[in-house]
Every structure is written in structure tokens, then in C-alpha cells.
């Protein structure tokens, strides 16, 4: 197992290289250039002064040369460089934003799974019946909602009118260390993200369960006279969880990208927010840092999914 994990990690290095090269090339070839790094001062500078500054930052070199220096800095010094916007180390900026995003994604994945797995199993058992139809339609409706639209509607109903939850942000003024306050602020964002991802998880679980229900060993179990629920819980659920676990690793990149909309609508200072503002500000080092860290998370997510797979299903061996 350890050897397998090590091989997988080594095997992912070329993948990471490809990802970072593509990102760097995209930025290097873009028009507009890094003018935005100057923020509001860009307006008052003359083009000649801007050229001078761009040269100072080494941004007038071809992108592949810049990429080389970036990689060298990363490999030799373990440094992701400094942000162009505020001259802070990129790693510090990202670490400052990561908790919010991880909390958001983590909590919403838990909530989604907690609802989607039982619902999916039950819909599979009641396949073709009213419950199945209704849940399927509801899932499609939830799936079709632009996530920012849903967020705005929830804010309007639960924060503006009912006043059950705070409007936005991650904490109340002066309450930045209050855990309960933080959770209170996360309820609506988590529910929003869970709602839109519910559909896929539920349908996944449902189809996986349907397949397992038709499998010979389940029929055998039934024949042995085990009750319906025992069969479902003991045999079906266990086997049907497999594809769901795989999906967990695969859905990570989209969750990170998607967290942006939630973070934007609910004004949460997270990594998605940082990422998109950095793209618009042409803050290359920060964009690269976020791309790299997201990619590492994705690779790690896939790896964990595979290992979990093995843990759930002893038939799978790695060699």
C-alpha cells in the first residue's frame, strides 16, 4: 500500500508540471499585461514608468523564462514568491484564506453526503415509484440553479426577512474568535453549496445501489431470508459506496472553483475569492500558488479516494 502511494505521488509530479506550465503560458500570453498589479496607481503612471516597473519585476521576459525562475524558486527555496498586489509572501496569503474554503467545502460535503446517500439508496429501493420520481425531479431542479442565484434567494429569505442568519461575512464585528458565531455565518453558504451538489451525489448513489441490488450476492442474501433493510444496509450500501468515494476525489477541483461564487455572494474571504481577484489583478504569483495548491489537493483527493476504495473493498489490491 505504501509503495503504491509513493508511486502514485511520484507519478503525479509530471501532471503537476503540466498544469503549472499551462497556467504560466496562459498568463504569459495574455494581453493587458500586469498593469493591474499597480492597482489605483496605474492610472497616474505614464506608460514609460509602467514599462520600467514591469522590467523591475522581471515581467518583460518571455513567459517560459519566468516559469523557469518560478520553478527554480519553488524547488530550491520552497518559495511561491511574493504577491504583486501587496508584496506579501504568496504562501502566507493562501494560508490565510484556506481555512474558510476548507470549512465551506468540508461542511457542505458532509451535509450533502448525509442527505444524498440515504436519499439515493431509498430512491433506488423505491425505483420508479412516486418517491423516486419526486426526488429525481427535485434533484434536477436543484442542479439547475445558478449557485449565486440560490445564495441570493436564501439571503433574502433567511437573513433579510426572517433574520435567522447573518447577511454575510465569516464573523460578526469584533467576534472573529467566536466559533459559534462562525458556524452561524456558515449555515447559509453550506446549505447553498450542498443544494446544488446534492443532485449528482444522490443520483450517483441511486444508480450504484440499483446495480448492486441486481447483483447475485444480494439475491442470495434475500434468499437466505434476511430482511430487506438488513440486505440494503449490510450489502448494498457498502458496495454502492464505492463509486461515491471515487467521485469525492474527482469533484474537488470543481468544488474549489465553485466555492468562489459562494464566497462572493456571502462575502467570505476564502481561496476562491482570492483566486478570482488575483486573476483579474494579474497577480501571477498568487494565481500560480493557488493553481498549484488546488492541483495538489486534487491529486491528494484522488489518491485518498483510491486508498479508501481499498479499505472499503478488500477485493481491490494494488500492485
Amino acid at each position: 500500500m505504501i509503495a503504491y502511494a509513493a508511486r502514485r505521488i511520484l507519478g503525479s509530479i509530471p501532471l503537476l508540471l503540466v498544469i503549472t506550465i499551462i497556467s504560466y503560458a496562459l498568463m504569459g500570453l495574455s494581453p493587458g499585461g500586469p498593469a493591474a498589479i499597480l492597482g489605483q496607481s496605474a492610472r497616474g503612471m505614464t506608460p514609460i514608468q509602467r514599462e520600467h516597473l514591469i522590467a523591475l519585476l522581471g515581467l518583460n521576459r518571455p513567459w517560459y523564462v519566468q516559469y523557469f525562475y518560478w520553478l527554480q524558486n519553488l524547488v530550491l527555496h520552497g518559495s511561491l514568491g511574493y504577491s504583486y498586489v501587496d508584496s506579501r509572501p504568496v504562501i502566507a496569503k493562501i494560508l490565510g484564506k484556506l481555512p474558510v474554503t476548507l470549512e465551506l467545502i468540508g461542511l457542505s460535503t458532509l451535509l450533502t453526503l448525509a442527505i444524498a446517500i440515504p436519499t439515493g439508496v431509498y430512491a433506488a429501493v423505491k425505483r420508479g415509484r412516486a418517491f423516486d420520481e419526486i426526488v429525481t425531479t427535485l434533484a434536477f431542479v436543484a442542479y439547475g440553479m445558478p449557485v449565486f442565484w440560490l445564495g441570493i434567494l436564501l439571503i433574502d429569505v433567511f437573513a433579510v426577512h426572517l433574520r435567522w442568519f447573518p447577511l454575510s461575512g465569516i464573523s460578526s464585528l469584533g467576534q472573529s474568535h467566536n466559533l459559534l458565531d462562525r458556524l452561524d455565518h456558515l449555515v447559509l453558504p453550506v446549505v447553498t453549496l450542498s443544494t446544488v451538489s446534492f443532485a449528482s451525489w444522490m443520483r450517483y448513489q441511486r444508480s450504484a445501489t440499483i446495480e448492486v441490488l441486481g447483483a447475485p450476492f444480494v439475491r442470495t442474501a434475500h434468499a437466505k431470508g434476511l430482511t430487506n433493510w438488513t440486505v440494503i444496509v449490510k450489502h448494498t450500501l457498502r458496495n454502492a459506496l464505492l463509486p461515491t468515494i471515487t467521485l469525492l476525489g474527482l469533484s474537488l477541483p470543481s468544488l474549489i472553483g465553485g466555492a468562489y461564487f459562494i464566497e462572493y455572494v456571502f462575502s467570505l474571504p476564502g481561496m476562491g475569492y482570492l483566486g478570482v481577484t488575483s486573476v483579474f489583478a494579474r497577480d501571477y504569483p498568487t494565481v500560480m500558488g493557488i493553481t498549484l495548491i488546488s492541483a495538489v489537493l486534487v491529486v491528494a483527493g484522488n489518491l485518498l479516494a483510491d486508498i479508501a476504495y481499498a479499505a472499503v473493498d478488500p477485493r481491490i489490491r494494488y500492485d
Binding site: 451535509l111 448525509a114 442527505i115 440515504p118 436519499t119 431509498y122 418517491f131 426526488v135 435567522w164 442568519f165 447573518p166 460578526s172 464585528l173 469584533g174 467576534q175 467566536n178 459559534l180 458565531d181 458556524l183 452561524d184 449555515v187 446549505v191
Partner: peptide, 28 residues
């Protein structure tokens, strides 16, 4: 089962909001 889930979710929501954090914290 779904109803239970929804009920549980609502319970969490309500209990969280019921823990009524005063919107204006006492300050200096």
C-alpha cells in the same frame, strides 16, 4: 428517510439561530 434528514437539518439551523448570538457585541 429524507424527511428525517430535512428535519435534522432544520433542527441544526434552528438550534444555531436560537443560540442567538447578540448581533451587537459589547465593546469598548
Amino acid at each position: 428517510m429524507k424527511h428525517t434528514a430535512i428535519a435534522a437539518m432544520l433542527l441544526v439551523c434552528v438550534s444555531l439561530s436560537a443560540c442567538a448570538i447578540p448581533s451587537v457585541a459589547r465593546r469598548d
